[in-house]
């Protein structure tokens, strides 16, 4: 148990900060993913065929390619691009790396954005058409209709699905340990290697992930209950 204690002898504090890192990457990725998801859903519901085609391409690729591969593509592709730009215009020479946090959060955001796109699109389509029509009939502008009627209603239809997307994003952060970012997975691997006690640390990591997912499931459940006020329950 000493291995998991706080301070110099144990890995407790390291694991704690790694958990915070996991949460930070997951949160940043999820929120950015919501932005991508909203744009994606808007594109999919657009009148313009070319916007729909772009959004279809986005979700097809991101949901059809292994997540780890996307992260590699981002990490190496992103670094190569930044190196090229920096060498060409900023007068640097040689390899320029990108912050592992930024690249990791971005990669997971792109991935979770693809899932959010489908969730948000479904939620918008679930809003009774008549309620949108009633909003137009009282003279609401498009912006007001979006803010007062569409967004709050879409959110409540989307919440259960977004809970899933969040959970996925949280677990996908384990994949960005390959970029060297010290989150739960990476920290457990380091600790396992230096103490020769892999099972202990991977079990500890599993518990940490479970704590995070359980807490967030509870939080999403609360939010769902709150948002479902006034809904007839089946």
């Amino acid at each position: 148990m000493e291995l998991l204690s706080w301070g110099d002898k144990g890995w407790g504090d390291e694991l704690f900060f790694a958990t915070l890192m996991t949460l930070a990457v997951a949160t940043a990725a999820f929120l950015l993913g919501l932005v991508f998801g909203s744009l994606g859903a808007a594109a999919k519901l657009s009148r313009h065929g070319w916007l729909r085609a772009i959004a279809d391409g986005y979700t097809t690729i991101m949901r059809g390619v292994p997540d780890l591969l996307v992260i590699y593509l981002f990490y190496f592709g992103g670094s190569a691009l930044v190196t090229y730009v920096a060498n060409k215009w900023l007068g640097t020479s040689g390899f320029v790396g990108i912050n592992a946090f930024t690249i990791g959060a971005l990669a997971i955001a792109i991935l979770s954005g693809a899932y959010s796109t489908e969730v948000i699109r479904g939620a918008v389509l679930a809003i009774p058409k008549g309620e949108i029509e009633a909003a137009r009939a009282v003279g609401m502008s498009r912006l007001l209709l979006f803010r007062r009627i569409l967004a709050p209603q879409a959110l409540r239809y989307a919440l259960p699905g977004l809970g899933n997307v969040w959970q996925l994003a949280l677990k996908e952060t384990a994949l960005i340990s390959v970029t060297g970012l010290v989150e739960i997975m990476r920290q457990s691997t380091i600790a396992a290697g230096s103490t020769k006690k892999p099972f202990t640390f991977y079990a500890a990591a599993a518990v940490l992930y479970l704590v995070l997912t359980t807490l967030s499931t509870y939080a999403f459940q609360r939010a769902e209950d709150r948002s479902m006020r006034g809904m007839r329950r089946a």
Binding site: G130, E131, A134, Q153, M231
Partner: peptide, 14 residues
């Protein structure tokens, strides 16, 4: 300036 009343009420459910 036109008050519309629909067949299916269309009250905002939220």
């Amino acid at each position: 300036r036109l008050g519309m009343v629909f067949q299916s009420f269309n009250l905002w459910s939220h």
